[in-house]
């Protein structure tokens, strides 16, 4: 029981941390990878909470497809919203 609670707490911490990172990150590519990490943590959470059907959906759509579609979009548009951020990075 304690082990389960520890796992859930750890996954929630990862989820919230990745979400905050995605919001505050200026580099959009890194932010998209962080959203992928959110989906990964959510997949683990669904699995621990005994919803394997939902976990499978989240793993296929959230981790793989959405991330890749966003990366393709970034490749076709811009990676930084601001020119200033781009200069700070290099």
């Amino acid at each position: 029981m304690e082990y389960l609670l520890f796992t859930i707490g750890f996954l929630l911490l990862v989820l919230i941390g990745a979400a905050l990172y995605a919001v505050y990150q200026k580099d959009l590519l890194y932010a998209v990878i962080a959203t992928g990490v959110i989906s990964l943590a959510l997949t683990g959470l669904f699995l621990v909470l005994q919803a394997p059907d939902v976990a499978l959906t989240e793993a296929a759509i959230g981790v793989a497809l959405t991330t890749i579609i966003f990366i393709i979009t970034i490749r076709n548009t811009v990676r930084f919203e601001d020119e200033k951020d781009k200069k700070m990075k290099h």
């Binding site: 394997p52 059907d53 976990a55 499978l56 959906t57 296929a60 759509i61 793989a64 497809l65 890749i68």
Partner: peptide
Amino acid sequence: YVFIHGHLTPGGGFQGGTIIATGFL
């Protein structure tokens, strides 16, 4: 496998279809 065994194991048409699309991707 996921969509053929949808009535026996977790998963189903949507999940299996998405996995196949990931392979093509």
